[in-house]
Amino acid sequence: MVYSFLVETYASERLKTLNVWSMFRDEDLDVRPHPRLDRDRTAHEHMVHQCQSEDRWFRTMFDIDLGSPPLPGTETRLAFIQRYADDSGRRLARLREKNEAWWAEDVAFFDTTHSRAWTMVRRVAHTAHHRGEQTTLLRLMGRQVHSVYGPSIDTGGLPIHDALTINAYPDIDSLIEGELQGGRKAALPGPGSHPSTERPGR
């Protein structure tokens, strides 16, 4: 199926999102680590937005309605992880059932129309954008950041220095099991001895 790459991209993106959520500590959720962040989201608010926004997009643009509330009953970090893992997993299963004609069909996208394939690309970009904001929050809080798409400073620095890609967890099942046990994320080597920029002299 020509659009299968979109399904697999969504599958990988849900793991990336949950891995980032696992990097926060419970006490981080409502912290604004910089005085100029009063107009931006906390980690808690990002989790609310991810769950509600994805629910809305899938109901109105992909015609996939899970028939359940998008937010957990108790808004803890682990509850958000479990709810999003479950809901996104059910959405993924529904996406795997769709054929090429469904993906190519034009649907309403806010005040315009686009194909569902185009809309999924925008959905992935939307999620990645907010995930970047969340890793910035982690940095401001002094937390370690595992890989999201490739090496990070905490996994050894830059790819040109042979830094490794080290995800917090390799899959969602081990992520939930590990977080239920208090956190079993992969160990990180730290930045190493090389500069963390391609232009260290500037």
Results as ranks from 00 to 15, higher is better:
Asp63Lys: 02
Asp65Asn: 14
Asp65Phe: 09
Asp65Pro: 08
Gly67Ile: 13
Gly67Thr: 10
Gly67Ala: 07
Ser68Thr: 15
Ser68Glu: 15
Ser68Tyr: 08
Ser68Ile: 15
Pro69Asn: 02
Pro69Val: 02
Pro69Glu: 00
Pro70Ser: 03
Pro70Asp: 01
Leu71Phe: 09
Leu71His: 10
Leu71Arg: 03
Gly73Val: 11
Thr74Ser: 11
Thr74Trp: 02
Glu75Gly: 00
Thr76Phe: 07
Thr76Glu: 11
Arg77Cys: 07
Leu78Arg: 14
Leu78Lys: 07
Leu78His: 04
Phe80Lys: 12
Ile81Pro: 00
Ile81Arg: 05
Ile81Lys: 01
Arg83Pro: 03
Tyr84Asn: 10
Ala85Gln: 11
Ala85Ile: 08
Asp86Asn: 07
Asp86Thr: 13
Asp86Met: 03
Asp87Ala: 14
Gly89Leu: 08
Arg90Asp: 04
Arg91Met: 04
Arg91Lys: 12
Ala93Pro: 10
Arg94Ile: 14
Arg94Gly: 01
Leu95Glu: 07
Glu97Met: 02
Lys98Val: 10
Asn99Gly: 15
Glu100Met: 02
Glu100Trp: 03
Ala101Pro: 13
Trp103Asn: 08
Ala104Glu: 15
Glu105Arg: 08
Asp106Glu: 14
Asp106Ala: 13
Val107Ser: 06
Val107Ile: 12
Ala108Leu: 09
Ala108Gln: 13
Phe109His: 06
Phe109Ile: 03
Phe110Ala: 05
Thr112Arg: 09
Thr113Asn: 11
His114Tyr: 13
His114Gln: 13
Ser115Pro: 11
Arg116Met: 09
Ala117Trp: 06
Trp118Met: 02
Trp118Cys: 00
Trp118Val: 00
Val121Gly: 05
Val121Tyr: 04
Val121Asn: 04
Arg122Thr: 10
Arg123Pro: 00
Val124Glu: 00
Ala125Ile: 11
Ala125Asn: 13
His126Pro: 09
Thr127Ile: 15
Thr127Glu: 08
His129Glu: 09
His129Cys: 01
His130Leu: 11
Arg131Leu: 10
Glu133Asp: 13
Gln134Tyr: 01
Gln134Thr: 12
Thr135Arg: 13
Thr135Lys: 05
Leu137Gln: 11
Leu137Asn: 12
Leu138His: 10
Arg139Lys: 13
Arg139Cys: 01
